[in-house]
Design a protein around this nucleic acid. Structure first.
Lengths: 343, 343
DNA sequence: AGAGTACCCGAAAGCGCTTACGAAAGCGCT
DNA sequence: AGCGCTTTCGTAAGCGCTTTCGGGTACTCT
């Protein structure tokens, strides 16, 4: 008794259409070298039979696979989920399947996942927020990725740029400038800045952007009160207390992240200061709650979805001699916590 | 001149280790029939050479692929992102790669994606929130999935259960019972319920659960004020107004979703009613803001991550004759908006 | 010591597809 | 009619792996 064949092969289609496997293959893959009439007939037969090609066989034979990989720390994190969304979008547009894996913030796992993707012969790998800080691990990752690239693989990272590959990085300077320009544009001139430790490049960059905006507005940034506190809600509360006691003339506070801004809002409210009527407050990051606060928080956000899109697009491009770096600009999200200063 | 081979094959490892390809394959795949010492040596050689198996070739030869597919409407949606997280977790645990695709709430696209996954010969497909409502589309999807299953493919869906396959569905009844029991357990006896239209099964189920809890506590559910309004914040506000005017003795309000609960909180506050000191409020769903409200909202949530895990586990199990249905119980999240009734 | 058994290992046949390569056929030209 | 050219299609050789099958060794038992 013949073994029941459940899935049909290209050969079945070929037989049915009365052509050779080669012709069938060419017809279906849209390759040249087959007359239009025959090709169309084969396609029609395939469609009627409900034939679906075995992509493993195809990839193996062709040596390339129409698939890409994405490594994220944790897809449940909205940050990464949006990046994934962007990657999935251009993947779908390009007819690529997307494999996603978790690294769980574990460099070891991250490297494993990258290797697994390479083993899967994906055409490109996008790495979101690489955690390779340990020099040895980083070197290992670099080596693997370079080898992968030599074999025709494409790589792009999001958020870090020390792996010697194309990268999409957030432009915190521009983001800082954006919020500052917004508040300055509203007419504020007595402004305080609430920030976390300036040792971190991210924060330092944001401040640089703010400073640029102030300079452009003709304000001496050295005279702007900069309150440094914990980069948390409590830090924001502390900063607000300080502003209320030592900088009574301030009409706007730029917080360098939303958490601080939320703490500031809360303290201002408990002190009976009305936002934005008396004092405007802005944040940075656009965390989920930002729009549900009252007043809702004016802030600045990274276009995560677009970053995911850019990353895959970047990876898919013709490889460049030197790693490219693409900056992603924050988008200003104007909400209820900012308004012109009191008259 | 020899063509430069960049990726190493199993044969390279075999030669280097001085064994045949067959032995090398067995050693690496952990199959039986090779002495431990040889197997270990081969593995060591492979590791040193940095060999990674070509999974396409492996899948093709073995006829099975260590990969699964997940179809979601939109991975950027936190709901689906958490499901994906669960799927990714058990995928990683089982050594499976996971392909994710968007359906974008478009049944046509959804079917396409399923077909693509099948073409990729994934071992299992998890469909989150299928959008097949149109009978024709649904029939097509059913047919495809059944064919896929006949070929050994596994399928599970999350949230809907009309595709004739294993499903993980939310147990809204149990969820309703959970919140109600919590509030009853706090000692409340004069309770109002705020709900949306009871025509929707989801809502009806939640109410059923609530009713069960009341019955168990010996309370006549028919005498409980049930305020039906829009299933939104505004609906919540309307409900709260009604409770304040017509049911002044109420000490707790069970809202059948968080949006209504938020509206209720807002109205109670503006009327100077303190939550939870005077009135306790509970929600349903655990939307993101729930924990950021003040008071933070006691609610009930679906364990999305676990649902994702269950779905894949269910799909991976030995197929059953009849589709299985696994109910996912909401988890009570006790926060600041509920407390014992005023003395 | 001889035969039987258990255990390793290698040769080789595919898995379903792509893609040289060559054969056949059709064309215009001399 | 015969030549060279182009176009179309089939034959067959892999892609890198798994797995069946059979041969070879080493070991045990009588």
């Amino acid at each position: 008794m013949e073994k029941a064949r459940t899935t049909l092969r290209l050969q079945d289609v070929a037989e049915q259409a009365g052509v050779s496997i080669a012709t069938a293959s060419r017809s279906l893959s849209g390759a040249t070298g087959v007359s239009p009439s025959v090709a169309e007939r084969v396609r029609e037969v395939a469609r009627q039979m409900g034939y679906v090609a075995n992509l493993h066989a195809r990839s193996l034979a062709a040596g390339t696979s129409r698939s890409v990989g994405l490594v994220v720390h944790e897809i449940g994190d909205p940050y990464f989920a949006e990046i994934a969304s962007g990657v999935l979008r251009v993947g779908a547009r390009e007819g690529l399947t997307v494999q996603i894996c978790h690294s769980g913030r574990d460099p070891e796992r991250e490297l494993d996942q990258i290797r697994m993707l390479v083993a899967n012969r994906v055409g490109a790998v996008v790495i979101a927020g690489s955690g390779f800080v340990d020099p040895a691990m980083q070197a290992a990752a670099r080596a693997d990725l370079q080898a992968y690239r030599r074999n025709g693989g494409r790589v792009a990272v999001i958020g870090r740029h020390h792996l010697g590959v194309d990268a999409v990085v957030p432009d915190n300077i521009k983001g800082g400038r954006a919020v500052a320009e917004h508040v300055l544009g509203l007419g504020h001139r007595s402004i305080a800045v609430a920030t976390g430790s300036r040792e971190l490049t991210t924060i330092a960059d944001r401040l640089t952007g703010v400073a640029e905006a102030f300079a452009a507005a003709g304000i001496d940034f050295d005279r702007v009160p900069i309150i440094e506190a914990a980069f948390t809600r409590d830090g924001g509360k502390a900063a607000a207390e300080e502003i209320l006691t030592r900088h009574r003339d301030v009409t706007a506070v730029l917080a360098m992240n939303d958490d601080m801004a939320i703490g500031i809002l809360s303290t201002l409210r408990s002190h009976g200061v009305s936002v934005p009527d008396q004092i405007s407050v802005s944040g940075f990051d656009d965390v989920a709650v930002a729009q549900d606060l009252s007043p809702s928080l004016t802030t600045v956000r990274l276009p995560m979805v677009e970053m995911g899109e850019s990353a895959l697009e970047l990876a898919l491009k013709e490889p460049a001699a030197r790693p490219r770096r693409q900056r992603a600009a924050h988008q200003l999200v104007v909400r209820g916590s900012t308004a012109p200063p009191p008259a």
